[in-house]
Every structure is written in C-alpha cells, then in structure tokens.
Design a protein around this nucleic acid. Structure first.
Length: 880
RNA sequence: GCCCGGAUGGCGGAAUCGGCAGACGCAGCGGACUUAAAAUCCGCAGACUCUAACAGGUCGUGGGGGUUCAAGUCCCCCUCCGGGCACCA
C-alpha cells in the first residue's frame, strides 16, 4: 500500500502534468458530434434478417403514449433496455430493439378541444418531438420498423383481427351493464375501473349504464391464461400473482334449487310467513314450479346447513317476482339505490349487509327442505350465477346476514382437531369455515371429510340431474367499445334487413375520417359524420349504418410487438415465418402498472393468433422485467406534486450519458429510484475523470504491441482488477441486472488506475497492458454511456464499429488474487486479519492464524475447543 | 381482511451460497494547487468508549425471541412503510 507521502507525490505529478495539457470533458460537444454521425447511419442499430447466422435476441421496452414529453420514468425504462440491447450486440447476437407509438387515445381529443388542433396533427407532432428526445438520449432503436398505431397501415390489422375473432365467435355484441366515466364520456373495461373510479380520473365515480357493446371473449382462455402462468418462469412472481388473482379461478359446484309452487301452500301457513322466518321442514305435498335457481358454491359440502337462498337484486327471477308485488319491488329498488350510494362512498367492503324476503321458497334438492328466497345486497349478479345458498354457520358473510335477520344457523361441520374453531368434535365457534373438518347432520354424507364430501356431493347432484362440479372465474369478457373518436373504427355494419354484417376484408381499412367535430357530449363523435355512418350493406346492397364506436386502445398494444418484426407488410399483419424467428420476446421491460391490463390482453391475443394459425408461440414474452418508479422528495414524480425533474434539463446540464447512467446507478432497476441532482453531478464527475485519463494515455494505448510476458507488480494488479470487473459485469448482465453495482465496479477500476498513475506515468506499466485496459474500460462503459464510449473508442485508435466490437472476455487466471486476507475470529468476534497465499492449504492458514500476535494474546491461558476453517473465507477459534 | 414487496451511516445504496456490515456515489470535514474562487487532486469519516498518542474495547442492519462456532442473510412473533386484491359465494 502506498504511503501518504507517495500518494501526494503522485498526485502532484499528475496535477502538474494535467495543468500543462488541460483537457475538459464537454458532453455537450461530444454528444452533438456523435449524434450527427449516428443520424447519418440510419441502419446502425438495424436488426439483421432472420437468415442471420447469429442467435437472435428480441429486447423490447413498452411503447409510450406520445404525450410529447419524455419523463424520468421513460428515461429509466429505456436506459435499462438500451444497456441490454447494446450488451447483446456486443455479445454477438442479432438484436431486435424497436420502438413505436401507442398513438390513439383520449388525450389527443382533449388537446383538440383545448387548442383546436386536429388529434391527428397533435399526435404526429408529439411523436416527432419525442423521437427527437429519444435520439438525443442516444437510444439504440431500429427505427426501420417503427409503428404508429393511429395510422391506417397499423389499425387496419386491428380491424382484420376483429373480423377473424367475429368469425370464430370470439367477438360478440351484447347489451350489458357497463362502466361509464362521465368525464371520458365513454365506457371503461373492468380493468380500467380502480376502486370504483375511473383510472384516468381518480375522483370520478364510475356509473353503470346499459349499452350494446362489443366484447372479446377472453374468458374462453381463462383456464389457459391461468395455467400458463406457471410456465412464465422469467416473469416476476408479483406479476404472476396479480394475474392469478385477477383471473380468480374457483372450483366448486353449481346446484339448482327448484322454486316452490305457492298455489298449493295451505292458507294458514301462508299467513304465517313473514320476512325473516326460518326455513320450513319438508312437506309431502310440496310441488315445484319448474323454475330453477342455480347457485354457485365452493362449499357444496355445507349444503345441509343452507337456511336460505340469496339472489342478487338484479337477478332475472327477482324482476319476475317484483312484477306482481309492488312492496317487494319498492324494497328491492331501495336496496339497489343504497348499494349505489355505498359504492359511491368508496368503501365497498364496509357496506352493511341488507336483505329482503321475497315471500317465496325453494327446495333444497339434497334434503327437500324449503328455504326462504331472499334478495341480498351482498350478492353480485356478474359472479357465479348471481345467486347463492346461504350457510350461516360456515360462511362469514352469511353468518353476519343471518344474525341480522334472525335466520336459522345450522352447524354441519365440526373441527377435527382442537385449535381452529374450538375443540375437536365439539360445536365450533361460529362462523366455522375451516375445510379440514368433518361433516355432521348431512344425511348419507355425514362423517365424511369436507373435501371428500365436495366430490361425492357434486357427483350425486350430477347423477340426479340438479347440478355438477364446475369452475368459475372472476375474469370477465373484455368490453372494447368506446364512444370516442380517436381510435380504431370497429368494422361492422347494421343493415335493416340483414342485421349485423361484418365489413368485408377487401373493404379494410375502415378509415377514420379526419373532419370530425369533437365534443365532450355523450355518444360517439363518429355518429355525427353522415359520410362515415351511411354505407351500403355488403350482403343485400341496401342501406346500412356503420358502427360508430371505436376500439379500446389496449387492442392496439395487445399485438404491436409482432408487427415490429414486419411493419411494412401490406398483405398481412406480419409474416408468420419472421415472427417464428423472433418470438417469443426474450426480454420485455416496463412498468408494473401494466401487470394486469396490457399484459393479460397481450397473452390473450397471442393465444388467439396461435389458434388462428398465425404464430407458433403460446406466450408472447419469455422474460419480463418491471422497473421501479422514479421518486423525488418521497413521492412519485408528478406534475400535481410539483416534484418533476425534466430529462431535458438534466441532459442540458450534465449530458445524456450522465443522466442515463445515473438512472442506472442510483438504485437497482427493480426498486424505486430516488432522484437526486447532486448524484447526477457525481456521475458527470466520474465520466469526466474517465475522459481525462483516457485522453492522457490514449496515445500510448494505440500501440499494436502484444503484451510481454514480464509484467510489473503494478501491471499485474491493474490487470487483476480489470478482469475482476469484466467478470462482475458480465455475470450481472446474465441475470441479476444490478447495474448500480456494475457502475460502481467501473468506478473502482478507474480508482485503481488513478491510484497507480505514478507508476503508469513512470512507464512501469507497458503500453500494451495500458492499451488492453483502456480498450476494455471503453467496452465496459458502452452499454451505459454510449456517447463517451464511442468517443474514447476512436481516441484510442479503434476503427471498427463499437457496437459490433466483441465484449471483453475475462480471464479467471488473471482475475485471481495471489494473496488473500483471511479474517480470524475468536468466539465469533473478529480479532485479526492474516494475509496468506490464495492457494494456501488449510494447515498453512491455521498456522498463520495461530501465529498471529493478536490472536495469540486472546488464546493465552485458554483451551481451544474447536477451530472452524472456511477455505478462502475465515477462521473462527472457539475457546473455553 | 387477504396476498406480495420493503426497513442497513446525515442521504442513495453495497454485502450474489450463513463467514471482515457500510463497497461505490452524494452531502460533510481537513489538506494541496490558486492572488482568490471555480475546477481538480489527496486524506478523514457508523455510534459510544478508553488513551497524551499508538493501540484497544463495547454496541450496531425496524423491535422481540430462537437456531448456529458464526445471522443484515435462516426460523417464530410483532411494528411501521409501499403496492396489489377485496361482499368473488
């Protein structure tokens, strides 16, 4: 180790030299120069054709909405993808790294209203601006397959896919309750409703409206979407869990209860019936009406404990019952109203349970008991069958409800073991919901375990024709109709004679007209354009009306990454053989906010395309990476919080290299990143030190001499550090992606170089060694600071394209330390450190430890009970 | 309520397999260079404690317990923060 005096002498020597040949790192000048040169080589980052002998690597960042502004979240996302793309090129892969624009959507219409600029013009201007910003950052995109989703050469294929789905029954129209955002003046998908509010307008309560809508049958793939999640080993567990919950598979049984025929009920009994009465025993003269109520349950084993049926207020049978019962109609209407108010209050979970007795009864098919039929506000129409059997003893919600209305609570399951729910084989604490338990009072199923009973009872129901085992999903079909202008027209016609008629494929694309008056009033703006609306029916030639709704913009982003492989194809969405070469995407990078919406739709679309015979892969993305948010002053950067730092300003002050490198250095990429401007200045200082060092010794690094065999200790040490750095970064790229520590390692390498500067200046490090170090250092920097790397590459006399230069190989022999420090502990406490040869044997290490003065002092007069020696790690001496 | 993350110096973070806690950077302090400043370079730097100094000691990774020769890392319990889902039968 150098003494303080030596170090100061070296510093003085170095300082003296640099003052005579003052070089300054000027990122503005360097980056402007390289940008010009890169702009002159449009195919610099172009992927090679599928015939390339190289192995393919498809790296993709989520395409942005062209708001016109890049924010730090974008910079971080793209810096990660760009580092990976550049690394993969240098590793000899054929890299596809495309970019495009998610260009349809409401902001363009809002901007049109505000500035009186047509959406198309506004969007295309923004795209041009954002593309300039991306190029300024120095991102290695292959623009030859750029996609703009609002242009007809792209959206015609949305229409084409829609027709294919329509032919297969995967696209259909139905009237349904839909989520309506008054501010967007359009329908929202279930996935776009957050806490009962609009995803774009956090304060806006979503209303329910009845509308005719187009749906895509994503539920057809619910099972597969769920099962295939287990194949996605390269996806974050968090995202897989979120999708699993969203799909929400429940195994259970559907059981039909027949409604009792009221006309045969004796008059006195009928009079006795009041809301809240308990169930009635089985009667011999009971007759069914033939009307059935199907319920879905995951606990068919508890069916002997059912003491009422509960229907959703919107259930069709309730509608029927209220027709001749004004009092009931009023009660149900009140209930719906309350429900709506509670939902608007926000906290759905806290809504008090509420019910109305309908006056009717149904028959439990297992024991012929007669269950009162209620309308319960906690029953959801669109889950399961919209009706349940209520088993108060064994369900939390049913228990609350029964307590409130005094319904009978009948225990049919006992705990097997003490602990959960009370003592074994005794009446449990209610409600008792554990399933590892035993049935009682359940006819022939008594004394079975719950799981066994579930199977047997579902089988019994099926045998007797009143039910079956079934699976229910939470996932619902994807409503894609939007009453907006700036989207893909849905290629459908309504003919007075022929009904719904698809636009023939030869008539695609259905062009979105330009001259449209945009208003925020309800209804699609396209409906006010007669030239668009009025068409001829392709079947009968008569007058027909066009569908005036447009598609959800998530349709655009569900398959865009396929189009990137063949964006100019005019006869098909893409060439399947080219897709077969590039897919699946090797690495997809984006924000976790798309964990459900975009990433489920994309998986669905891929499965549809596979079934259409267009692609062979069943999943679009092999590995997914979700980067953390960019935070400043403890909150996510946002205009409303006033803590936004603009990338432009950072680039202006410190350069693109420093800005993007800081985005990788400040935190591991999967964690949130705290933006500190002083940190960017620190990176800029580091790049400046690299630049000055390289410029000072660049001339010597131009040597063509091969490194000689004889090397000074200084060269050995530097080469060791170099190869350790290469090893660290290479390994990190292959999995962990902790670019923050990669950059730290490059800093350490530079620190070692400047610490050895006196020896370097004195010629103790041969030029050939210096050349190897500078070349490798430049290559290591290339994924993170491409401008500086290209500049230095040239300055040290390299002529070939840096991006195609081979990534440096590390040499284990050179990376190996010849001496290592072994910590020595006594009773687990660090007492000394001994230095031994790296290949020292156990005896040698033990002897060195025992011989150490400090250790000897600790051992004096004590008995060594045990000695633990971990090779190359540590020695721990246990004494009594 | 349920399911995932996370908590380490003044700050961002490091410690990849149970083996020297705090790499690297920021901010800070001291110094060199300078007429001066900026820039640059060198050095110091978890807390407490002992010492004139050298050297040393104790404590320390949100809190409490445990396993182990050894725990930021593994196990159990708890607190706080962030995210997702939520009357899903």
């Amino acid at each position: 180790m150098a003494t303080k005096e030596q170090a100061e002498a070296a510093a003085q020597a170095a300082a003296g030299e640099s003052s005579t040949s003052e070089v300054r790192y000027n990122p503005g000048e360097i980056e402007a120069r390289w940008q010009e040169r890169w702009a002159a080589q449009p195919d610099l980052y172009a992927a090679e054709p599928a015939s390339s002998p190289k192995s393919k690597y498809y790296v993709l960042e989520m395409l942005p909405y062209p708001s016109g502004q890049l924010h730090m979240g974008h910079v971080r996302n793209y810096a990660i993808g760009d580092a990976l793309a550049r690394y993969m090129w240098m590793r000899g892969h054929n890299v596809l790294h495309p970019m495009g624009w998610d260009a349809f959507g409401l902001p363009a219409e809002n901007a049109a209203l505000k500035n009186n600029t047509p959406p198309r013009q506004w969007t295309l201007q923004n795209i041009a601006a954002m593309k300039r910003h991306m190029n300024r950052i120095g991102l290695s995109y292959d623009w030859s397959n750029e996609i703009t989703t609002c242009l007809p050469d792209y959206y015609r294929w949305n229409q084409w896919f829609f027709l294919r789905m329509y032919e297969r029954g995967l696209a259909y129209r139905k009237k349904s309750k839909v989520n309506w955002c008054p501010q967007c003046a359009t329908v929202l998908a279930n996935e776009q409703v957050v806490n009962g509010c609009c995803w774009r307008h956090e304060e806006q309560i979503v209303e329910q409206r009845d509308l005719e809508q187009w749906f895509l049958r994503i539920t057809h793939y619910a099972g597969e979407l769920l099962e295939d999640l287990s194949q996605l080993k390269g996806w974050p567990e968090k995202v897989r869990t979120m999708q699993r919950n969203w799909i929400g598979r429940s195994e259970g049984a559907e059981i039909e209860f027949e409604v009792e025929d009221d006309s045969v009920v004796p008059e006195d009994e009928a009079k006795a019936r009041k809301p809240g009465t308990a169930l009635l025993p089985a009667r011999d003269d009971v007759r069914g009406t033939g009307k059935k109520i199907a319920v879905f349950t995951t606990r068919v084993d508890t069916i002997y404990g059912a003491t009422s049926l509960q229907l959703a207020p919107e259930h069709p049978l309730v509608k029927e019952m209220t027709e001749n019962d004004a009092a009931l109609a009023e009660a149900v209407a009140g209930q719906l109203d309350q429900q709506k108010k509670a939902r608007e209050a926000g906290d759905v979970g806290a809504i008090e349970k509420h019910g109305v007795f309908t006056g009717h009864y149904a028959i439990n098919p297992f024991n012929q008991e007669r269950l009162p039929i209620w309308v319960g506000n906690y029953i959801l129409l669109d889950y399961g069958t919209g009706a349940i059997m209520s088993v108060p003893a064994h369900d939390d919600r049913d228990y609350d409800f029964a307590k409130k209305y005094g319904l009978e609570i009948r225990v049919v399951v006992l705990p097997r073991r003490p602990g959960e729910g009370g003592e074994a084989d005794r009446e449990p604490l209610l409600p008792f919901t554990a399933e590892d338990s035993l049935l009682i009072n359940s006819g022939e199923f008594t004394s079975m375990g719950c799981q066994e009973a579930q199977q047997k009872m579902a089988g019994y129901a099926e045998e007797h024709g009143f039910g079956k085992a079934t699976v229910t999903y939470r996932l619902k079909d994807w409503g894609i109709s939007r009453q907006r202008y700036w989207g893909t027209p849905i290629p459908m016609l309504y003919c007075a004679i022929c009904g719904i008629v698809p636009v023939p494929e030869s008539d695609l694309p259905v062009l979105l007209p330009d001259n449209v008056q945009i208003t925020q009033q309800g209804g699609s703006p396209l409906a006010k354009v007669p030239e668009f609306v009025n068409a001829k029916c392709p079947k009968c030639g008569g007058n027909a009306l066009r569908e005036t709704d447009t598609m959800d913009t998530f349709v655009d982003s569900s398959w865009y990454f396929y189009r990137y492989t063949d964006a100019h194809n005019a006869t098909a969405p893409f060439d399947s053989s080219v897709v077969a070469y590039w897919f699946p995407i090797d690495q997809y990078i984006g924000g976790v906010e798309h964990a459900i919406l975009h990433l489920i739709y994309s998986r669905f679309w891929t499965k549809v395309m596979r079934d259409l015979g267009l692609v062979r892969n069943g999943e679009p993305v092999e590995r997914l990476f979700t980067q953390g948010m960019v935070i400043r002053n403890g909150a996510k950067m946002s205009k409303s919080k006033g803590n936004v730092v603009s990338p432009d300003e950072m680039i202006e002050r410190f350069g693109a290299d420093a800005t993007r490198m800081y985005a990788l250095f400040a935190a591991p990429p999967d964690r949130d990143l705290d933006w500190q401007e002083d940190g960017v200045a620190g990176i800029s200082r580091f790049l400046s030190r690299v630049y000055r060092f390289a410029m000072k010794y660049g001339e010597r690094a131009r040597t063509r001499d091969a490194p000689g065999a004889e090397r000074s200790a200084a060269s050995q040490a530097l080469l060791r550090k170099l190869h350790q750095t290469i090893r660290k970064i290479t390994q990190d790229f292959s999995g962990r992606w902790h670019f923050n520590t990669c950059i730290a390692a490059i800093m350490e390498l530079l620190n070692a170089l400047t610490a050895a500067e006196a020896q370097i200046a004195a010629g103790k490090v041969p030029d050939a060694v210096l050349a190897e170090i500078l070349r490798s250092l430049t290559l290591l920097l290339a994924p993170f600071a491409p401008y500086l790397a290209f500049e230095l590459w040239e300055q040290i006399g390299q002529k070939d394209n840096l991006l195609r230069a081979a990534w440096p190989q590390f040499d284990e022999a050179l990376a190996k330390e010849d001496q290592i420090e072994i910590p020595v502990q006594v009773n687990g406490k660090l007492r000394s450190v001994v230095t031994v040869a790296a290949d020292a044997g156990e005896d040698e290490v033990r002897d060195a430890a025992m011989a150490d003065e400090k250790i000897a002092a600790f051992l004096a007069g004590k008995e060594v009970a045990r000695l633990i020696l971990v090779p190359r790690k540590l020695v721990n001496i246990v004494v009594k």
